[in-house]
Amino acid sequence: MRPTLWQTLDQTARRLIPFGLSLLLLLLAIVPMTTPGFLRAGPMITLLCVYYWAVHRPDMMGYLGGFSLGLLEDILMNTPLGVSSLILMLTQMVVLTQYRFFVGRPFLITWWALALVALGAILLKALAIALLSGYVVAPGPLIASYVLTLLLYPILAWVFARTQILLTKEP
């Protein structure tokens, strides 16, 4: 049975929501004044977004989504273009190739796995920026950013889980 036009539109809109929500979170994180001082440590918001959807609904955010989100992040944050895109897509790739490990696992396991993925991601990002711009980021701020990223995950995961329930509801 071929889907009607309305169904196609509905599907497309649903597929855009995870990306739209991630973009909104990225913008919220850089709007001045909303963020208490500690957020200036720079948590990797986009990594959390991409990770959540890759683990729970990989069909909802593909590589193109990860690429675009990374590109926007690099432009907004003034980091070398392409670096965040690469890191986000590698994160998606790692999760997707280990899909059997992730499927149906409790939250604590995915959080623990995130600790590993995020560690790899932040180190790779620091390395890529060091190679491209020739400066090495001090370890202190890197650790702060890493810890903050991990601490933010339960909150973001809750928001995304709510969204996921809404998205899977039949119209």
Binding site: I30, V31, T35, R40, A41, L76, M77, N78, K125, V137
Partner: peptide
């Protein structure tokens, strides 16, 4: 008006 404060680990700038 400052509309974005992209203070972070890798770069620090305002929009």
């Amino acid at each position: 008006r400052v509309v974005a404060d992209t203070g972070g680990v890798f770069a620090r700038s305002l929009l």
